[in-house]
Design a protein around this nucleic acid. Structure first.
Lengths: 121, 121
DNA sequence: CTGCATCCTCCCCGATACTG
DNA sequence: CAGTATCGGGGAGGATGCAG
């Protein structure tokens, strides 16, 4: 608690913690690809353009650790591993989609504003 | 366009571009502090815990460049600079608040899942 | 008070090679 | 196919000093 009129963004508030998770560039995209249902590793890699194997593994591990994704390993030859959003993971989809919608609508304006700003240098 | 059944997250889609902006840890927090109205530089710095002067300047410049924040310089002694959300900037508040709400509700669960995962090592 | 420049450190992430 | 290990470059970002 604080005596300030506006509740500040202190270091360990929930918002900050979430930002640490979605700020790594890949988390949001991976969650997005899993919207339609479970996918295997290679399929996710294919859909998220530019993600390296290392980063994808790292991201999926983090999501699994946070209880947002389940990892199912089928001990076959060749190996098959499927990832699926948990209940908690699915609740994250809605606010993420809201952001995505905002981006779709406004990013063009943002980009043109950027050009205008740069031109005015 | 693509012939794949699921529209992939290609490198330059709006979502990716937005992620580049909010992925820097400070943008979201700064926009959040400006929700209540215009603020001066030092006041924002005070409310966003842990932001360095350098990063705050950098973040505000980026937001100004993107047309999400206006910068008003009052040539007084001592100088006073106020920052305020633009119309576009205000539209960003809603999806951001949705994320904030999600964090408030779910981060405790995420944290405990994290502990459980770490304990199971 | 606000902002810019410089230096310097750390760690993110990609490339590569190798296991089960 | 899925994952781990290692190395190295580059960029993010903190500390400090100075200007307007």
């Amino acid at each position: 608690m604080t005596d300030r009129p506006f509740d500040p963004y202190v270091r360990d508030c929930p918002t900050r913690q979430l930002l640490d998770r979605i700020g790594d560039r890949w988390t949001v995209l991976v969650v997005g690809t899993l919207t339609g249902g479970p996918l295997r590793f290679s399929e996710i890699a294919r859909r998220v353009d530019g993600v390296s194997q290392k980063m994808l593994t790292q991201t999926l591990r983090a999501l699994e650790r946070d209880g947002l994704v389940t990892r199912t390993h089928h001990p076959e030859i060749p190996p098959r591993v499927e990832y699926e959003l948990t209940e908690a993971g699915r609740t994250l989809q809605e606010p993420l989609r809201a952001l995505e919608d905002w981006a779709t609508v406004h990013m063009a304006g943002v980009l043109s504003a950027r050009e205008g700003y740069d031109a005015a240098v």
